[in-house]
Simulated assay, not measured.
Amino acid sequence: MTKAISFALLVGGIVLLYFGGQAFNSVSSDVARVFTGSPSNKAIMLIVAGVIATLAGVTGIALSGRKR
């Protein structure tokens, strides 16, 4: 993975985490929590995708810096 792709994954992951946090604290998520006991699926998916993309970006940056 090149550094540019890794950096894009890192930034994209951070953006997804931000929007996941916003969705987690939204009114619709609060309503879903009242009836189901868990936040909305959108909030969960955004947070999971953000974590995966962030980890992939950090891993790619760390591995691209190593000499072969």
Rank of each mutant, 00 (worst) to 15 (best):
I61T: 07
S64Q: 07
V11T: 14
L55M: 14
S40Q: 11
S28L: 14
V15A: 15
L17I: 03
A23G: 00
S64Y: 04
L16Q: 00
Y18D: 08
T36M: 08
G21L: 09
I47D: 06
R66S: 14
L55E: 01
A53C: 13
I5A: 07
I47K: 01
D30G: 14
A8V: 04
V34G: 08
A43C: 08
M45D: 15
I52D: 11
I47E: 04
M45Q: 14
K42D: 12
A49G: 10
V27R: 13
A49R: 02
L63D: 08
T59E: 11
V51D: 02
D30Q: 13
Q22D: 15
I52C: 06
G21Q: 09
G37W: 05
I52L: 15
M45P: 08
R33G: 05
A49L: 15
V11P: 05
G13F: 00
V31A: 15
G12Q: 03
I52P: 07
T54Y: 04
V51Y: 02
P39A: 12
F35P: 00
Q22R: 14
G50M: 03
L17M: 06
T59Y: 15
Q22A: 11
V34F: 07
I47N: 02
A43F: 06
S40H: 09
F35M: 09
A53V: 07
L16C: 12
V15N: 00
S26H: 10
K42H: 14
V58W: 05
I44M: 13
R66L: 14
Y18A: 13
T36I: 11
D30F: 12
V48A: 15
A49F: 11
V48Y: 04
T59N: 12
S29H: 10
V15D: 00
Y18Q: 04
S26K: 00
A56Y: 10
A23M: 06
G13D: 03
S38C: 05
A62E: 03
R33K: 10
A8Q: 05
Q22F: 07
L9V: 01
I52A: 14
S28R: 13
G57W: 03
A43M: 09
V51E: 04
A8W: 06
V51W: 06
A32W: 00
A56G: 13
I47H: 04
A8L: 12
A23W: 00
I5M: 05
V31Q: 15
A56T: 07
L17K: 05
A43I: 08
G21T: 06
R66N: 10
V31I: 15
A32G: 04
R33F: 12
G60K: 05
G65N: 03
G20P: 00
V11M: 10
D30L: 12
S40A: 15
S6V: 02
V11D: 12
L17A: 06
